[in-house]
Amino acid sequence: MGFILKRLINSIFLSFGIAIVVFLLLRILPSVSFSDIYLNPRLSEEMIRRIKSAYGLDEPISIQFLNWLKEIITGNLGFSFIYRKPVINCIMESLSSTLTIGIPALVFSFGVGILIGIQSARNRGKLIDRITTSSLLVLYSIPSFWLGIILILLFSYTFRLFPPSGLHSFNFNELNFFEKIFDLLRHIFLPALTLGTPPMAAIARFTRNTMLKVLSQTYIKTAIAKGLDQKTIFYRHILPNALLPVITLFWALSSNFLCRFNSD
């Protein structure tokens, strides 16, 4: 419990530090002015001054940061000058697509990656291990956009198994509950597979290396020397210790994984 609390406190300070750096960089680095990017060039200087004053952009940087931090804590993420609406609305509009495709892709990448990594480690040095390792390297190196095009050409236009685009069919509202679930699964299969395949390969290799590291530990050799059953050694000693770094990796990558998809 103390370890979790310590990591939580460290995360808070780290997030606060990142917020300060990003906020200052956006205002210190030389760039095009606010009025040139967001405002109509026909506006008068007086009108631009009033708009900046309304949003507190004429205040000192320190005051701007404190005001921004206060609004963030209270849940006000501000107004988007690009989309002309509150930022929270922009996030909520894309959140459903992010969760619908990002979570299945995340589950696929870790679920399949862990299973492949475990089997590869258990068959270390065999032909199947060499084939698996080489295949994972290829899958990890494939760009997602290229993999997506290949999957669309293969499964959408050649075999016509999955739709090439969209999150649901045109008659989605006319379907019953189970037909809607099936229709949604058909539409998100290819995007989730495309998004989850490269991370799956990386996670499989990471799991394999972790398993091999655990297998070389002294307590595993001692358990083997005592004559313990292989299943007991694997499920009680090897697997729990090998999955600890993988679980840590899951929490570290899950937010980045979903945020990257959301930005794409």
Rank of each mutant, 00 (worst) to 15 (best):
F65L: 04
L139H: 00
V214P: 01
S11D: 08
S11A: 14
T74G: 08
F172C: 02
L24A: 10
K126E: 12
T210W: 00
M211R: 05
I61H: 04
F110C: 07
S94L: 13
A223Y: 06
S156N: 04
I142Q: 08
N209M: 08
T158Q: 03
V32E: 14
R84L: 12
F261Y: 15
W146C: 05
L115D: 09
L26A: 13
K221Q: 13
Y219H: 09
I63H: 03
S11T: 07
P30M: 01
S263H: 10
E179N: 14
K213Y: 11
L153Y: 02
S156F: 01
P245A: 06
F178V: 15
L29I: 12
F189I: 04
W146R: 05
R7W: 05
T218G: 08
I116N: 03
L154P: 03
I128S: 15
L193M: 13
I12N: 03
D229Q: 11
K226V: 04
F206S: 10
W146L: 10
S94I: 14
N256Q: 12
I142H: 06
N67E: 07
N176W: 11
N173K: 08
T210A: 15
K126F: 10
I131K: 08
V112T: 09
S254K: 06
V138G: 07
S263P: 09
W146Y: 14
